[in-house]
Every structure is written in C-alpha cells, then in structure tokens.
Amino acid sequence: MKTHRNTKARFVFLLPAAVWVLTFTIFPLVYSLYLSVHKVETKMNVSREKVPMLDASGNPVLDAKGNPRTKIKINREKISTWTNIGFTNFKRLAEDPQVHSAIKVTSIFVLVAVPSQLVLGILLALLFNQRLWARSFLRAVMLLPIFATPLAVGYLFFTIFYEEGGPLGFLGVPFLSHPDWALFSVILVDIWQWTPFCFLVFLAALQGIPNELMEAAKMESKSKWGLFANIIFPMLTPTIVIVLLLRLAEAIKLFDIPFALTGGGPGVATQSMSFLAFRTGLRYFDLGYASAMSYCLLIIVMIIVTLFFRKLRQSYA
C-alpha cells in the first residue's frame, strides 16, 4: 500500500519535467521530422461582413443621423495543405551547393577554432597554475569574455575589425571583406570568446592534480615536457574530452557571431549550417527544407557525441 502511494507521488513530481521535455524537446523533434518530409502550403479564405457596432454595454452605436453604425468583421479560414514529398528535401541537401559550402565553412570553423581554444586554454591554465604576478586579477580579466553576449561580441568586433579607421585598420588586413579572412575573423572572435571557458575548466582540473604528485614527478625528471606529456596531459584527458565535447557541440551550431559580424559573407564565406537553416526556414519560409538541414546537423552532432562518450567511457574504465 505504501509503495503504491510512493509511486503515485513519484509520478506527480516527475510530471512537470516530463511535460516540459515532451512539449519543448520531443514534440519539436517529431514535428520537424514530419515537416521535413512534407510540403506545406498555407492559404487563408477570407470573407468580410458588416456587423453592428456595439458599445461597452452591448447597445448599438448610432451615427449623427440616428442610424446604427457598422464595422467590418473579417472571417478567416486557414487552409493548410500538407503534401508528402518523401525524402525530396534530404535529396536537395545532397545537391545544394549552399549546403556543401555551409558544411565546409562549419567544418573549417570547428576544426580550427575548437582545437585552438583547447590548446590555448591548456597553455593559459598551465601559466596561471604557477605563481604569477597579480594572478587573481589577471585571472578575473581573462574570464571576462565568457560573460559577454555573443551577439554583442559580434557587433563589437565589427567595430574592431572596421577596415577604414578601426582600431586594427592600420594593419591593412581585409578582416571582413575577404572571404578567407572573414572566416578567420569569425574563428578569431570565437576563440576570443571561448578560450576563457576552456582555460577555466583546465585550470580547475590542473589544480585538482595533487601537489605531491607533481613534486614526486619533479623529483624524478627535470624534463618539463616529459612531465607534461606523461603526468599532466594524461590526468587532464578526461577533462579535455568533456571540454572538447561541449565545445564541439556548441561550435557546430555556429550562428550568432557570423550573424552579427559578417552576415554570413562575403558571399557565403561565413555562412554556417545553422545560419543557412535559419535563412531557409525563417527568411524563405521553406520550413521543410530547413528542418531537413537541422536534422542533418543533429545527426552529425549525435554521431560525434556518441563517439566521444564511448571514448570517454573507455578512458574511465
């Protein structure tokens, strides 16, 4: 009897979470899959009629001549036709040069930005793990980019990269007007924004390595590289895998920085997959195709995440 009541209570407590997940995760997921294999056309049938104008207490309003005034009421009937088009949208993905370009842009971005963030994060963490002048102040400064809104960062760097009289204008670098440089600039901003996060996590991990362990190793070898490669790096590995995973999943979704900094351009040089999906879905209102793109992205992310978790589990075993 008691168990029974417990079950009920458990159900009640779980219900909000379940409803939340169903409403905001499962439903959109299923709906967008449904959308991706359909062509949706929405039309409205409209008719207008004149109805008497009523005042607050429900009496007809009269005009100057004493005739009842009328107003227009719009009757709407929304007609959506869903045509099953099978995997047409997914076939379009395979043939669409914009998609190919977006995958290329996203891949280059991920493959350059994420490793750079990790390496820089580790180097900075190693630096800050030593005694350093004004360490806590510098550490606080280092972390500031984490607290900036990506969109604002994009606009901020638009000013910094401004080629006619901007602060970096003297370099003569076409930060935003040359396709390769533009992608590099996007990568640079992402590195600026996310290296601190990697740094923070790695610093915490480094400080979690017992001091005596490092001292024991130090007494055995004076090769700093040997200690890093054999002690520090292996002990950081689980953390690196987690950070890599988080950064990969985040970086593949790249959207806000190009949106604010380059508009995806010049041309499509910085148009990422998410950006393209956004334009397709919310600018061309080709929701089915945008859903197909998003699914494509989701599958890529899931494959990567699964591989990583498998690797992670192995490294813990």
């Binding site: 017992p210 005596e212 024991a216 190793a217 130090k218 055995e220 070898s221 002690i231």
Partner: peptide, 27 residues
C-alpha cells in the same frame, strides 16, 4: 630536484593514478 641524487616518499604516496604499478616504479 631530479639531479640531487635524492628520492622521496610522500605522505600521500603520490602515485600516478593513470599508470600501472610497473609504470609507476619505472617512470
């Protein structure tokens, strides 16, 4: 420290957790 010809045993033992006993001793 590595050049002083001294070797040290620590209170916490300071073994390298990711290495086997053999690797620890031979490190």
């Amino acid at each position: 420290p590595a050049d002083r010809g001294a070797a040290m045993v620590f209170q916490s033992y300071a073994l390298y957790p990711h290495m086997s006993v053999r690797e620890n001793i031979g490190f």
